[in-house]
Amino acid sequence: MSALEAVLRRTSWSKVTEDAPTREQLLPLIEAAGRVADHSSLRPWRLIELRGDDRLALGAAIAKANGDDEPSGKPLRASLLIGVVVSYRRSEKVPRWEQEAVASGVAHTLSLLLDEAGWGVIWRTGGYTRSRAVAAAHGLAENEQLLGWLYVGGKPEGKDAGRRAPVDADALLTRMPQRGER
């Protein structure tokens, strides 16, 4: 399958089975995802693997962030969650927004690679991703922020993730205005 075919086929899987890739299966995919464009090769990102009771701890942290009495069941929707963290580096040339873009690029590329490997993936976020309780649960340093989680599992048999409407590329690819047209 070509990269173009993989990207055109990609979709989010909101429901997945309990199956999940092993750490050993993840490592080469993460290595490949780490090849995204990265100005000055700062590698301003890291990933956190959450399995088993890690997901319960996350549910408790989400509840704390939201002021809820009961732990959130959201982290139990997949047996593997991959926390996406931007780790800001000091740089005179690379601003923070660009470093966050690199971390986002790693997450998106990893989701494409997981999909191509046969896994169902959805990138989930929420207001609580930037909360102190959730940051503490992930052991984030002062220079880090959580961008969300890739929920990863098996694709249910006989199910389709659903398809998104095609992108109108012609409407979204514009030209620079010519002098006098601005």
Rank of each mutant, 00 (worst) to 15 (best):
M1G: 13
E142R: 14
T22D: 09
E31F: 03
P95G: 04
K155G: 01
H39N: 03
K155L: 07
A6T: 15
A63N: 10
N66V: 03
V152H: 01
P177M: 05
I82L: 15
E157C: 04
L140S: 09
N143T: 11
L58H: 07
L47Q: 06
G148P: 05
L110D: 06
N66E: 15
A37L: 07
K159L: 05
A136M: 10
T17W: 06
L81K: 06
T125R: 01
W123I: 08
S12A: 14
H108I: 07
V16G: 02
L114W: 09
R175L: 11
G120H: 02
E18S: 14
E100T: 11
V167P: 00
A3Y: 04
Q99T: 06
G158K: 02
W119V: 04
R51T: 14
V94C: 07
T22E: 08
T11K: 13
D69Y: 00
A137D: 11
V16A: 01
A101C: 01
Y128K: 01
L4T: 14
Q145L: 05
R46A: 01
V16W: 00
A169K: 08
M1W: 01
R130Y: 14
G73Y: 09
A135P: 02
K15I: 09
A60G: 03
G73F: 03
E181K: 12
A141M: 11
A37D: 08
W149L: 07
G59H: 14
L50M: 09
G118S: 07
V167I: 15
R124M: 11
W97Q: 03
T109W: 12
V84W: 06
A33Y: 05
G126A: 13
G154R: 08
R90A: 14
M176C: 04
D168V: 06
L80D: 05
V106W: 09
D170G: 05
R35K: 12
R132T: 10
L173F: 15
V102Y: 08
